[in-house]
Design a binder for these strands. Sequence first.
DNA 1: GCAGAGAATGTTAGTTACTAACATTCGAGA
DNA 2: TCTCGAATGTTAGTAACTAACATTCTCTGC
Lengths: 188, 188
Amino acid sequence: MAKSDRTRARLQQVALDLIAEHGFEATTVQQISVAAGVSPMTFFRYFSTKEAVVLNDPFDPHIAAAVAAQPGHLTPLSRACRGLRAGVAGLYLPEEQQVRQRVRILAQSPHLAAGVWANTAATQEVVAAALAQHAPETDARVAAAAVIAALTVALLDWGARDDEDTLVACLRRALDVLDPAPVKRKRA
Amino acid sequence: MAKSDRTRARLQQVALDLIAEHGFEATTVQQISVAAGVSPMTFFRYFSTKEAVVLNDPFDPHIAAAVAAQPGHLTPLSRACRGLRAGVAGLYLPEEQQVRQRVRILAQSPHLAAGVWANTAATQEVVAAALAQHAPETDARVAAAAVIAALTVALLDWGARDDEDTLVACLRRALDVLDPAPVKRKRA
DNA sequence: GCAGAGAATGTTAGTTACTAACATTCGAGA
DNA sequence: TCTCGAATGTTAGTAACTAACATTCTCTGC
């Protein structure tokens, strides 16, 4: 592992610990850098903004393919939901508890929650592009935004709770709210 | 009109002009204040952040009542959409062109677009609360978020375009994407 | 018209996020 | 060991905000 990777990991770990303890706004970049034994400048070389250290999009653009693969005769919303369901199903989360810890931080600061939404812009675009093959562009954008918003809210909600619910199940339920057709036929 | 109202209006007008011309990031609070003949401190007394001068939520919390009035046997998504449709129908926009000018500014900066979403938090909550009477809370939140996201994207999309489309028609179409049942029966 | 009260604004001096330009050290391979 | 490039530091600056306090307006009652 290169030195830079270690520094980045150390910065992020220290940042998450401090923020979890004192809150996002109350934690300064200076504190983080000092605690990581590094100068503030170095922090910004690894994370372009303070938000970036805690924000990282769990949605993978590869789901666009899954969306595009859905049959074109469905409504844009259904296509998006079914595609996302397929994408979510393949989600591999090695350390769910650590993910939850981070999401918890996000859920607590409205400022960060807005950042999460902004961070999904790329995902929204690819989903919208996939939908636009069979629907007007505006409709595609609207459907994509609705689905991603639903997943985002479900994610934050999951982070705020403290039960045994699994993230994947939670996301699936969110999709069911928008597209209530999880019919699993044994055979057509 | 009190002096404070005039100052606020002047600051906002000057800010919108400058931002429309040079962009949001490129316009400093200092420039705005000077152009308005006032000190930067005064700017912040009227607008808590630079964003606030351009951000103001067009969604009125009174729509919560319309949502709550929808029949409980429908799915949360349908209830939300039908409620919002009723709310949007009663939308009165005196100066649609000025609204569009402002929305155009919002649509151009990703940072501001995220702010718009954050600004809808209050509306989301009241819609979710109205839905929660007949659905699990998480489902209610998810449906509310999806619907508001759809309207937000439709709003920004409308601002980015330059056609003769009216905002209300645009919002209605967005709702149709999520709840394709605008059936207008003559008589039951 | 005028005095006083309270609102509106200014000044000063900070803190924090972030950037640019340039100097320095560190680490791995020749 | 030398050397080159990566990693980091330093310095100096800009811009968004904030707090505390001083000043100037503006309206109201006399």
